[in-house]
């Protein structure tokens, strides 16, 4: 029956990571390589830079190609002043990680509300709501997120004295609300027309029909797409590091400038982002599969 097919309808919007679903072996293989590669590096680099390991490696190196530089580094290790910068960063990370997560979670919740409002507005028959929603979506989608962040934090923040966290969440969710609005609109319109007709024929009002019949079905259709937005938002949250907000990226930048070496902190942060998005995209794939197996 046609209904069964329509039940398994899903929207695919891929500004998140590629989703490693079971059907696609290539994506799945590259997902595994990327995840285990990143995790491997995150374990290997701190271990390799431990004092005894460095001592061994540098001694070997000095034996083969003697140079004043190698000797200087060996001397540093022997003096006991050597710090393993890779381990050091990992100890700092949790602070930045929690800020990144707080911004991401708060933003996704608020963005979902904005998105729901925008989506309902776009299908609204009230001209005013419709105009507000469509203009919001058009305008916001047309301005780069980084410009919006600058605008809200520096331009508006100057006038209204916005707190960094608040400004971050506001700009992220305002922007993502517009993307989510499109997802909600598409999801609502993907519910077969007969559902609305049946609800109306039973005497429900349009808003009752939307709340009781259309939206519950919309949620199932758009859940994977929202998962994707979540991943994209997690990555884009790195843009809030331009504010006085110490998220993962800002933490790495601060660490780099304090120690005069950006390579280790930025490498670690990039790998941590990669691991997080890979795990999240796997979760989205699992969720999508569950929804497909269980169309309710």
């Amino acid at each position: 029956m046609a209904e069964v097919k329509l039940n398994s309808l899903r929207i695919q919007i891929t500004d998140g990571a590629l989703i490693p679903d079971k059907g696609n072996k290539t994506v799945r293989a590259s997902w595994k390589i990327a995840l285990f590669g990143a995790l491997g590096l995150l374990v290997f680099l701190p271990l390799y830079n431990m004092a005894p390991v460095q001592d061994f490696v540098l001694s070997l190196w000095a034996g083969l190609f003697p140079s004043p530089e190698t000797n200087a580094r060996l001397a540093e290790i022997h003096s006991g002043k050597y710090t393993n910068i890779w381990v050091d960063i990992l100890l700092y990370l949790p602070d930045g990680l929690s800020v990144t997560f707080e911004v991401t979670l708060s933003s996704i919740l608020l963005a979902t509300l904005f998105g729901l409002a925008a989506g309902l507005g776009q299908i609204s028959r009230v001209v005013l709501f419709n105009r507000i929603a469509t203009v919001y979506v058009e305008v916001i989608r047309g301005i780069p997120l980084l410009v919006q962040i600058f605008y809200i934090y520096f331009a508006l923040g100057n006038i209204f004295h916005l707190d960094g966290f608040f400004a971050a969440v506001l700009s992220m969710s305002f922007c993502y609300g517009a993307y989510m609005g499109e997802i909600f609109r598409a999801g609502i319109q993907a519910v077969p027309r007969g559902q609305m007709e049946a609800a109306l024929a039973l005497g429900l009002s349009r808003s009752q029909a939307i709340a009781r019949i259309i939206l519950p079905q919309t949620v199932k259709i758009i859940l994977p797409a929202i998962g994707n937005e979540f991943i994209a938002l997690l990555k884009d949250s790195s843009m809030v590091s331009v504010m006085a907000l110490v998220d993962l990226l800002r933490l790495a930048k601060n660490y780099g400038s304090n120690h005069g070496d950006y390579f280790p902190p930025l490498t670690v942060v990039a790998l941590v982002y990669l691991v997080m998005t890979l795990i999240l995209s796997w979760l989205v794939a699992v969720m999508e599969e569950r929804l497909n197996n269980n169309a309710r």
Binding site: E3, P192, Q195, E197, A201, G203, L204, K220, R296
Partner: peptide, 20 residues
């Protein structure tokens, strides 16, 4: 119209049962 629809039942070609 809602009052009228309460008193006029309708059965559709594609059933239109609510799947959730």
């Amino acid at each position: 119209i809602r009052k009228i629809r309460e008193e006029v039942g309708m059965v559709f070609q594609n059933f239109n049962l609510f799947p959730h």
